[in-house]
Design a protein around this nucleic acid. Structure first.
Lengths: 199, 199
DNA sequence: CAGCGACTTGGACGGACGACCAACATACGC
DNA sequence: GCGTATGTTGGTCGTCCGTCCAAGTCGCTG
């Protein structure tokens, strides 16, 4: 095998692990499956990571926030708050339907972390991160439009997170895109009712 | 061991498996852990079940609908639609906070089923069941109050399911009861805006 | 070129798991 | 009471897993 710095090999293994997880699920991402995906001999693994859990930790912290970007971009385009929220949700949903596996993995990782002694904190940080992203988007949107939210932003962020999270989960199972998009529309409209013009 | 019909032993094993899952997670519910919980010798397992998956299938189909009952009862009490919806959601949430493990297990089982070849259909039935329960409750509530929903009931059911599912998941991770209940209140009020007096 | 630190590799380990079985024990119909 | 169906048991098989290691290879520095 070509010689490579341990640091670089780590990155490739992390990426390979994520691919395996998306394709076969978190539980199937064994050390052997991962090095096989990365086309490396097994011995490499514990030269780069002290344990399998150390790698899972890396995956968990790296791949949980990729989906927010499209939503953020759409939110910063032109138009009034209504169409921007709508487009933002639509863009986010587009990402979900295009790459469902990534989202499925994040759920699996959450539940894995909740059960793994010493990993609960990681799950907590994961969702804390989600909520902060939503809060950030809500505050941004409010500032651009010069409105204020009539409900505390943390509550609104949790509401948004819940709807999206629950909707994705349901769609992952039954793939009913039509009704899902309708729910998305409902939630978006609901959100707008909490926007109030600043005096 | 006392002699017992295989049928009865199956039931005890299913119950034991569920207890193990609630306590330690689905992945930890190995054949050995289950028979140990049921205080039976290992050999019993494959006398009663042809495979571990057969047992998981039983667990999945049995323990997914226990939480809806409290909500249904509260919905059928006295009062106008507003307070009944509010109380129903409150009763449901009470159940969540009292027994979070059961809900955690249902998520784990869903993701397990989604990854297990030939089990996807089970996950689909699980969520189909959830949606039907919600639809039933919505229709009941509408009939009692003589209103109609201004949004198709399947969409409303999916919305309700998403909010609750997502909210539970978030709470399982960060245990923020205060904000969660606030979101629940928001969703309940939102629901009421879709109720329209029949002419 | 010698030496040393960084990297590579195949194989081996102990443990856990699902599944299986042969031998035995009990109940029940005839 | 005998035979068959049904239930019980402890042990074992093969597999897969995370982890570890010893021996080997490479490339740089002095």
């Amino acid at each position: 095998m070509a010689r490579m710095a341990a640091k670089d090999r780590r990155e490739e293994l992390i990426a390979a692990a994520f691919r395996v997880m998306v394709r076969d699920g978190v539980t199937k991402a064994t050390t052997r499956a991962i090095v096989n995906e990365a086309k490396m001999p097994l011995g490499v693994f514990h030269y780069c990571f002290s344990s399998r859990e150390e790698l899972l930790q890396e995956v968990l912290t790296r791949f949980t926030f990729r989906s927010a970007e499209a939503a953020r971009r759409a939110l910063q385009e032109d138009g009034d708050l209504g169409v921007r929220v709508s487009k933002s949700l639509g863009a986010f949903w587009e990402g979900v339907e295009l790459g469902p596996g990534e989202h499925q993995v994040t759920y699996e990782l959450t539940h894995y972390a909740l059960r793994q002694a010493g990993f609960e904190e990681l799950a907590r940080r994961q969702y804390q991160g989600y909520l902060e992203v939503h809060q950030g988007l809500l505050r941004e949107a409010a500032e651009i439009d010069g409105i204020r939210w009539t409900v505390p932003v943390p509550v609104l962020a949790r509401y948004l997170n819940a709807v999206l999270d629950g909707l994705i989960l349901c769609w992952l199972v039954d793939r009913n895109s039509e009704d899902s998009r309708e729910v998305l529309r409902l939630a978006g409209e609901h959100l707008l009712t909490f926007a109030e013009k600043k005096e």
